[in-house]
């Protein structure tokens, strides 16, 4: 800025330049103040979460991460079941959503006629606009009772005696409901981003495959999908970040529980959902602090995942930012 102001006198009348210089100075100061403020808020979020969690961090240390037990009366807290819950729910939902989402994206770009592609894409994007509390509502009042009466009873009777992971009681709400609801929520993210990656595959690559006499499916599955793998991977990492942090839909469908899950039908908590469900029940400062400690763990996990995603996609796309 300083150089701009200094150069100005050579080319412009004195008075006018002074006014323009002042306007630009204010403009620069204003915008930089905003940027500073936003970065300060971001830094503040980290600081506040660390300070809020500090009493619990001091009392339980890193053992908090590997201990089981959640007793607000005797103030004994360990977040292992929630960490395990977060990972299991996120992974389960990711496996379902990645498989179905990628297949759907392939279907849209390779199988559907051109006139159907846009409407189907738009419909699936609509899923992304349904707020998570509505997914929670559907999961709690429709999906969970449905699973309880049908699928879970069948699993308990037929698979339960043979496999320990299926040997649970059909509560309805629990890991299975939460995973299914979360998978539906991740679908639009994976479908739209993978579709974009598939569309960007150059024509030559495709035609090269056909020129070798390959069948359409072999071109799609053997050439186009591998070619678009970077974009697809990016969409998966973004979805993973979303899955780890999803709060209210999981809180409404996972049922709530403080022990490690043994079966797919057990009830439990994830790091985010335990905060949402227990926050208004907090009875002591240490209890609150333990919940914030859960938030801190969640924050660290999601920030790491997102930074990895940012650099991954940036490196792959070679452009600033990326679209979600």
């Amino acid at each position: 800025m300083a150089t701009m102001v200094a150069e100005a006198p050579l080319t412009r009348p004195r008075e006018k330049k002074a006014r323009a210089g002042r306007g630009d100075r204010i403009y620069h100061i204003l915008i930089k103040a905003i940027v500073g403020m936003v970065l300060a808020i971001f830094a503040g979020v980290f600081t506040v979460v660390v300070i809020g969690a500090w009493p619990a961090v001091k009392r339980f240390g890193l053992g908090f991460l590997i201990h089981t037990g959640w007793d607000p009366v005797h103030l004994v807290f360990g977040a292992l079941p929630f960490i395990v819950g977060t990972i299991l729910v996120a992974l389960g939902a990711m496996i379902l959503a990645a498989g179905i989402g990628l297949m759907t994206a392939v279907c849209i770009t390779e199988l559907l006629p051109r006139w159907l592609q846009a409407p189907v894409t738009y419909l699936i994007e609509l899923l992304a606009f349904i707020p998570s509390v509505v997914y929670g509502l559907f999961g709690l009042l429709v999906l969970a009772p449905f699973l309880q009466d049908t699928v879970e009873v069948w699993i308990m009777e037929h698979l339960g005696p043979h496999f320990e992971v299926f040997n649970g009681a059909p509560y309805g709400v629990g890991y299975m409901s939460a995973i299914l609801i979360l998978a539906i929520m991740l679908l639009p993210l994976i479908v739209t981003l993978s579709r974009e990656a598939l569309v960007l595959v150059p024509r030559d690559v495709r035609e090269g495959g056909y020129a070798l006499g390959l069948q359409k499916w072999d071109v799609v599955w053997g050439i186009i999908v591998p070619y678009a793998r970077n974009g697809i991977l990016g969409s998966l990492v973004l979805a993973l970040g979303r899955a780890l942090g999803e709060t209210i839909a999981v809180a409404m469908t996972i049922g709530g529980g403080y022990s490690l899950p043994k079966t797919v039908m057990d009830q439990g908590y994830t790091l985010a959902s335990v905060i949402a469900n227990e926050f208004n029940e907090v009875s002591s400062d240490m209890y609150l602090s333990a919940l914030i400690y859960c938030g801190l763990i969640l924050l660290v996990i999601t920030v790491v995942v997102n930074i990895l995603a940012y650099f991954l996609i940036r490196r792959l796309s070679g452009a600033h930012g990326f679209k979600a």
Partner: peptide, 22 residues
Amino acid sequence: ARVAINTFIGVPSIIMGIFVYF
């Protein structure tokens, strides 16, 4: 700033709730 912005898009919203609560 760009990394910060893109990181913050992915931070779970409940964390912002914790921040404002305090």
